[in-house]
C-alpha cells in the first residue's frame, strides 16, 4: 500500500488544464522529487494534494483513506505537512512561539507544545535563535523555522515547496544536508517540489517530471537526466528564454 496515491487527477482553471490525468504513488520512507519548468503545473498538483484546490476529477488517497476535497487543515491532521516558499508567520512571535503553533496541532497543553517545539528547533539547528523574532532573521534561517513549524505538526509526509529558492549555493547545500538528516533520523517521507533540477537530483530516490500539466516522465534521477523528453522540456524552455533575452537587448 502506497502512502500517497494520486489517481487520474485533473484540474483546470477556466478552460486551461493546469493538471491533466496525473497519477502517482509515493511509498513510505521515500524521497520523491517533483520537477518541471515554470508553468508545468507543479504548484497546482501540490495545492490539490494539500487541499487548497479541489480537483475537478481524480482521487487522492493518503494512508488508504480518500482525502480528495479535504481542506488544508484536514489534510494536515491526516498527516501531510507542507512548507511555503516563505513561511514567516508573525513578527510579534518569537521563533519558539512560531514553532509552538505547529505543536499545538497535536496537543493543547502549553508545556508539551513548548518542549516539542524546542526539541524540533534542536533538530533544525536553531537552538540559538529560539528567542529571536522572525523579522530579525536572514532568509535561510526563516526557511528553517518554516521547516520546523511544519515538522512540529508531526507529519508523515512532508511536502516542500521550493526549499532552495532565495538561498545561495552554500545555504542550499546545507538545506539539502538537513533534509537528508531529517529523513534518515525520522524515516519521514519527503515530496520535494523544485524547478531547479540540480537541487532535487542528489537527494531524490525517484523523480517525477511534469510539463504542460502532464506527467512526462518518472524514474531514477540518473535515468531522468538522460530522458529525451525531459531534456526537451527543459532545453526548450532555456532555448526560448535565450531567444527572448537576445530580443530585448
Amino acid at each position: 500500500m502506497a502512502l500517497l496515491e494520486v489517481t487520474d487527477l485533473t484540474k483546470d482553471f477556466g478552460g486551461v488544464a493546469a493538471n491533466s490525468h496525473i497519477s502517482l504513488e509515493i511509498e513510505k520512507g521515500e524521497i520523491i522529487g517533483l520537477i518541471g519548468p515554470n508553468g508545468a503545473g507543479k504548484t497546482t498538483l501540490f495545492n490539490c494534494i494539500v487541499g487548497y484546490h479541489k480537483p475537478d476529477q481524480g482521487i487522492i488517497r493518503f494512508k488508504d483513506k480518500n482525502i480528495t476535497g479535504f481542506k488544508p487543515f484536514q489534510t494536515n491532521r491526516e498527516g501531510i505537512g507542507r512548507t511555503f516558499q516563505l513561511m514567516s508567520i508573525s513578527g510579534d512571535l518569537t521563533v519558539l512561539e512560531n514553532v509552538m503553533i505547529g505543536s499545538f496541532c497535536r496537543t493543547s497543553d502549553r508545556r508539551i507544545a513548548r518542549e516539542e517545539a524546542s526539541e524540533i528547533l534542536n533538530v533544525v539547528e536553531l537552538e540559538k535563535d529560539t528567542e529571536a523574532y522572525m523579522t530579525e532573521l536572514p532568509i535561510a534561517t526563516q526557511k528553517r523555522v518554516g521547516l520546523a513549524m511544519a515538522l512540529a505538526t508531526r507529519p508523515e509526509l512532508l511536502m516542500l515547496d521550493e526549499v532552495a529558492s532565495g538561498l545561495n549555493p552554500k545555504e542550499t547545500e546545507e538545506m539539502v544536508a538537513l533534509l537528508q538528516r531529517i529523513h534518515e533520523a525520522k524515516g519521514l517521507t519527503l515530496f520535494v517540489i523544485e524547478h531547479v533540477m540540480e537541487v532535487v537530483m542528489p537527494i531524490s530516490q525517484r523523480i517525477i517530471v511534469l510539463d504542460g500539466g502532464q506527467k512526462i516522465a518518472e524514474g531514477k534521477p540518473k535515468d531522468i537526466a538522460n530522458d529525451e523528453r525531459v531534456i526537451k522540456a527543459y532545453l526548450g524552455e532555456k532555448y526560448a528564454k535565450g531567444r527572448k533575452n537576445r530580443g530585448s537587448i
Binding site: K71, F73, R77, R82, S88, L93, C105
Partner: peptide, 11 residues
Amino acid sequence: ANEEVAESLGI
C-alpha cells in the same frame, strides 16, 4: 498573521 500558513498547520 497569515491565514494560508495557519491552515497548513492544521488550524
